[in-house]
Amino acid sequence: MTAAVADRPAATATGTAIWWRNNRATALLLLAAAPALLFLLAFYLLPMMLLLAQSFEGGSLKAYEKALTDGLYVRVLIDTMLIAAYVSVICLALGYPVAYFLASTRPPWPTIGIIFVLLPFWTSILVRTYGWMILLGRNGIINRFLLDIGLLSDPLPLLNNLNGVLIGMVHVLLPYMVFPIYAVMRRVDPALIAAAEGLGAPGWQIFRRVYFPLTLPGVLAGVTLVYILSIGFFITPALLGGGKVIMIAVLIETQVRQFLNWGFAAALSAVLLAATLLVYVGLRRLFRSDLQWS
């Protein structure tokens, strides 16, 4: 009994030592991540909490009631989600073949291709959006050209409408679709493709039954990323939509800048955040069983 008691402190000391040995890596990593964590805490999480608090001004849910029942705001929220969906689908349709090209050509083409995909990243989004205005306007380069060669008699409505917004957003967001898909494609085992071929599958069946399902995790990652980024887009729809395409971020900005209605802007932001999270969780659910098979 006495021996056991005498052993205790020693045992605890050993316990601490063992704990430290097992968790040292985690503890050190946490320490390394601490500056970024603190930054996010102070300049992201805290302001967000303050904003959320403002949305319940005077302890009432009035702002939320307005945001969720007023036809205008509901309409804009739905439009925003629809536009985000269009952008995701267009990015997927354009990005998947690009990713396939990058993943399947021989050097040096992948490197060259990746530089081209990244190129827009190195230009300011504002500059790119103004660039599109010059290209897409009624008297823009594209319409001028098509009119001059006689292909059109009236200019195409490319700017200050949904077309312009979609073109601009797809341009900005395409890399976010290409890279996740590309990363997954590179890990697809070529032996599986050979096996499908040897078992009698023609090219399109190999794609439909084997290749595409194996790249679905990348597709999911790309779609999620593009969709979520689209929902909160501001500059591009504001400039290329010409006031006719209202996305929720534009609306929030108006509430703050023009009406100084912080409470309502905060409520709209909260609704937007909730909608984003819902979509994210929904997409993950949808593909959950197929997420990983390596």
């Binding site: 032996a191 050979a194 071929e197 040897g198 399902p213 194996l214 098979w293």
Partner: peptide
């Protein structure tokens, strides 16, 4: 003839079973 038209069954080194 392409592999798909040869009527040959093949067992690969790492089996190449479709993981999905």
């Amino acid at each position: 003839a392409p592999p798909s038209k040869r009527d040959i069954g093949m067992v690969f080194q790492n089996y190449a079973l479709f993981p999905h």
